[in-house]
Design a protein around this nucleic acid. Structure first.
Lengths: 204, 204, 204, 204
DNA sequence: GATGAATGAGTGTTCATTCAT
DNA sequence: CATGAATGAACACTCATTCAT
């Protein structure tokens, strides 16, 4: 059983990966089953032995992202100090974006129009990250390391920075941001979120 | 003449608005000329008296956004102090997002796959905002109001916060963020970017 | 009356001429009422004040050709001797083709598919010419100038030569034929039809 | 492989034949893919598995005609004496027209408006025949069998006769020509081209 | 299981024709 | 009379999906 299962799983995987690539390149609608099949090296009909429909491919891709237990990494980082935490999260998210670029891009085209996909994406991918971040913030505030703040605002604010910067690095290579080494990026952002921009503390 | 022109412009406008709505709801591909026409209350063929093609509709929507001279607002705000500037920009962008929601959403489905659209969107919509923000930062740093920082990182970081928060407020009404009054939002973000999160300055 | 009539006729004429040109250039189907109207300098709707439909334009063009009482010329030439007659007919037909090129070409695209048009074209344009030619041949045979022959075969044979040569001169400028002076052409054909190709009589 | 190939070829053939018929009956533009498909007994979409586009069907039909190596027949006939040659060519062309009627008629509607098709038709179908005829004439002139003549005029003259007569026989059944037995036709034309029409030689 | 040929529903676009001005 | 904006029927073409082999 495990043998058959494994073969089947492997092929499903291959199909999903090819689908993600094609979806990412052409968008969901312009992508064709034929091309996905060709990229895996199988016949178009074969895909239907593994997936119900073209749409099911997309939803499976969404699940793939969701399954990547993002929060685990976050929880592990929660034992670090503020500086370390922010650096770890940044690092992890940048990696995540790079690793899953085709999957994320594949979803991006459809997430805006499919209500269920949108909800799914939010509740499964974004919300947990916010929640984890919020929990961390609250803990640190309680410890007196960070000042009190409205975590439901600050968490998505930080997330937004990371996301946009990641997108810019991936999609707009001509913007300066693409050339900045990753550690410099992390350092600058860490400082921004910990110390803000005021000149206040500088002179001391 | 002015009369005809005006009628023509009005109808173009109506078509564009309907197109944006349908694109936003269904995504560019699932949207049909027939439905757009029906929403305006005209025949499908009539649309082609005003726009070359379905794609031209999308590009016009993009132009509509681009033409909205974002930077003017930013420039006017550049005379304010740091707190006022951040608040003004935040306010303006939140308004912009709300005002242009269907247009933005219409673009969102295609901007990921159409190279030319992507470049256009970046160079015309995002880059100017970054540049304006960067200029402001540099000025304030020179004045000694803000500490030195890498503006090419900080500008998109702030932009990302604003964008994600705007998206959440618009698309995910079930998230807490939707209920926060706008001025509280602005206050919290202003504080975040000016002072950071460290408890350092708090107790003193 | 004559005044109104004349204006109306003039405009009909202009429309017909424009239609013939566009039909000739693009073929009946690719031709558009809009372009025909533009070429006359009127609005598309106006054409319908003069002609029932697009098809009516085509039929009117056919009538135009038919009205050109071809046979009159032929009858006048029938008093000439054989050499003069053939030369006159050749000359006249070459002129006719050149003069009516757009009209003929306009019809050419449709004459193959429209049964009524085909019949009309044959009975009104070709058959009379054949008949006239046949009558002439019979007269000359009776006079002993020409040898007996099956006129219903010879007439279209000569006509076919003239038509193909005319088409080649008009449509295939790269063929040698386009450069041959008209009188040389007429001379060669006259000789061909009168004397044939045999060397028989040459040496004597 | 040969098996699949053959099936595929057969179906391509069937589609082409159906297309030629419909094009011939309705003309290229009025013909619909749907009707062509129906005539073959397949779904419209299936046609696109065999041909790129509707236009490609037309071009394939043109190729079909072109591939019919006309000149081979002509070359074989070139060993015959003048009378035999003319008879052979006439016979062959009449057959060719009858055999390919739908294909020829299919092209006829478009050959007048499509520059590339026109050129193709002339250079591939007509020109070689003229050239072959011209070569034959020159040979016979050199042998002293035929009198010197301008072959570039005589060749299309003869071709024109054959073409028009063929068209009349096919398209205008009510004309006398349709009833004339083929051998009488050939005899009359042979005599026309060899001896001409002058009574000159008759009395001797 | 795998194939890939066949399907046919669905859509952007054109353009002859109409009719309110 | 003339206009030209509006109409909407018609058609080529695509591609997810099926199913006989």
């Amino acid at each position: 059983m495990g043998w058959h299962e494994s073969l089947r799983e492997q092929r499903k995987e291959a199909i999903l990966e090819a689908a993600a690539e094609v979806f990412a390149q052409k968008g969901y609608h312009r992508a064709t089953i034929k091309e996905i099949a060709a990229r895996v090296g199988i016949a178009p009909g074969t895909i239907y032995l593994y997936f119900e429909s073209k749409r099911a491919l997309l939803l499976s891709i969404a699940d793939r992202l969701i399954t990547q237990r993002v929060s685990e990494v976050l929880e592990q980082a929660s034992s670090l100090d503020a500086q370390g935490y922010i650096a770890a999260v940044l690092q992890e998210r940048l990696d995540f974006f790079r690793r899953n670029q085709p999957f994320l891009q594949a979803l991006a085209t459809e997430v805006w129009t499919d209500e269920s996909l949108r909800r799914r994406f939010f509740t499964q991918v974004l919300a947990p990250v916010f929640a984890s971040g919020a929990r961390y913030l609250e803990k640190k505030v309680a410890e007196g390391v960070l000042r009190p703040c409205r975590v439901e605002i600050v968490a998505p604010a930080v997330a937004g920075s990371i996301i946009l910067i990641s997108l810019l690095r991936i999609f707009v290579p001509e913007y300066t941001l693409a050339d900045v080494p990753e550690d410099e990026l992390i350092e600058e952002l860490t400082r921004l979120y910990l110390d803000g921009l005021s000149a206040r503390g500088e002179g001391e």
